[in-house]
């Protein structure tokens, strides 16, 4: 995918997805596959680092909506970090900050999984 990429790393017991580029109805399936893989591998403590994310449409937000309940019911969470202001604004318009843990820095998310 030319304008979207995703990479997975592991820190302590937390899986981190680094997403870069533009997340829309065309590229959302890549994020979905990456989340599915983590869940299949029983990795439920997930951080999505959005530092390289330039753009998100509602199709991208829909992926987070589809998996959050499953992950939380299995004792984990999907925490979002390092968003730029434009990307945060889209999450904010749809009311995500009250239902999702959206943090400034990846380290804060790693710490909150320890608690």
């Amino acid at each position: 995918m030319k304008n979207f990429s995703i990479a997975t790393r592991q820190k302590q017991n937390v899986s981190i997805l680094d997403i870069k580029g533009e997340l829309d109805a065309h590229t959302a399936s890549h994020l979905e596959n990456a989340l599915k893989s983590l869940i299949d591998e029983e990795r439920y403590s997930i951080v999505v680092n959005c530092s390289g994310l330039d753009y998100i449409a509602s199709a991208g937000l829909g992926v987070f909506m589809a998996y959050i309940e499953d992950v939380r019911s299995l004792g984990g969470d999907i925490k979002l970090t390092n968003m730029n202001d434009r990307v945060y604004n889209v999450f904010d318009l749809l009311g995500f900050p009250t239902l999702y843990d959206i943090l400034e820095e990846e380290e804060e998310a790693l710490q909150s999984f320890k608690n």
Partner: peptide
């Protein structure tokens, strides 16, 4: 859209027009 309701029902669409 009622975000919490949609999450519970695992529905992911229906936000575009609102946006």
């Amino acid at each position: 859209p009622d975000l919490m309701q949609r999450i519970k029902e695992k529905k992911r669409g229906g936000m575009g027009v609102y946006l």
